[in-house]
Design a protein around this nucleic acid. Structure first.
Length: 297
DNA sequence: AAAACGTGGTA
DNA sequence: TTACCAAGTTT
């Protein structure tokens, strides 16, 4: 016992974040009460590398069209690819449909809460599996996405940027989580939200941060990133752009299209042909006996 | 383990 | 205008 005024113990970081989240959280549709694990799974897959603002309208459409795994499993690839719109990485749409079929076959048309069972689903990796268990089923799970890796890098390790994903990230967030299960669940979203709104990649808003007093990076004087700059992947001129253009033609068309129509989408014949092939291999496209191309029925 | 995989908003 | 970057997964 100190005889003088003891310094007030720093409030627990986990609890502080949960309390901050209560007032600062965005009102996102998949966070509303009554949203089931399937709808959460759909949102998580759509949110893989795609910003919230673009996901919202498409997510509403999907959960209205296909409110359960069985409904999506019964849809055709063509319907699913069209409904995916321009969210990007359309293989996600196909995999989500495959996941729906797997849920019907292996889990009675329901979404399991077990992380290993979730990770066994196509297009569901370590992040998504934990996110679905945690946010979809209310099972406390440490969750590590790009936001969390950045928050951990700064708050815990005092580094400006997260490097490549490390196995220790999971342990690092888990160490901050409140013991109470309900609060632990909210903590997992709260850390992501902090990374999305405050501890952002560009210019972090440390003055608005609820845990700036506990931040190792701030304490170190916000040192800049050391090491090689992370290079951003090019897009213009890549096969990704060509595939996007090609698929865009098919999505817009009412039915099968002539090969000539696709030639207008990209000049380089060799690249166009290569991309057409890869789209066929991926099951995003189909070629009819008459040579025309179509979305897979 | 690096690279592929879409798209569009923002600084 | 270019460059960064957004709730990753797969090969």
């Amino acid at each position: 016992m100190e005889s003088t005024a003891a310094p007030r113990p720093a409030p627990d970081v986990g609890d502080t974040l949960v309390d901050w989240f209560a007032g600062a959280a965005r009102d996102l549709p998949w966070r509303r009460p009554g949203v089931d694990a399937w709808a959460v799974l759909v949102s998580e897959v759509m949110l893989q590398q795609t910003p919230v603002a673009r996901v919202e309208p498409v997510w509403r459409e999907w959960v209205a069209l296909w409110p359960a795994p069985a409904a999506l499993a019964a849809a055709s690839p063509a319907e699913v690819i069209r409904a995916w719109g321009k969210l990007g990485y359309p293989r996600r749409a196909l995999r989500l449909r495959e996941t729906a079929a797997a849920l019907v076959e292996r889990h009675g048309g329901t979404v399991p809460a077990d992380v290993a069972a979730l990770e066994a689903l196509p297009g569901v990796g370590t992040y998504t599996a934990r996110a679905v268990a945690c946010f979809g089923h209310g099972t406390p799970q440490p969750v590590v996405d790009t936001n969390v890796r950045r928050v951990v890098a700064r708050l815990v390790h005092g580094r400006a940027e997260a490097g490549t994903a490390r196995a220790s990230d999971l342990r690092d967030v888990a160490a901050l989580a409140p013991a109470d299960p309900g609060r632990a669940v909210r903590f997992s979203v709260a850390v992501m939200e902090l990374g999305a709104l405050v501890c952002v990649a560009g210019t972090p808003r440390c003055t608005a941060c609820p845990v700036t007093g506990a931040c190792a990076w701030v304490r170190a004087g916000r040192p800049p990133h050391e090491g090689p700059p992370r290079r951003v992947q090019r897009f213009a001129g890549t096969d990704r752009q060509v595939r996007g253009r090609l698929l865009d033609v098919l999505r817009a068309a009412d039915g099968p299209v002539e090969a000539a129509r696709l030639e207008e989408a990209w000049d380089d014949a060799a690249q166009r042909s290569r991309c057409l092939d890869s789209l066929l291999v991926d099951g995003l496209l189909e070629q009819l006996p008459d040579g025309r191309f179509t979305l897979p029925a």
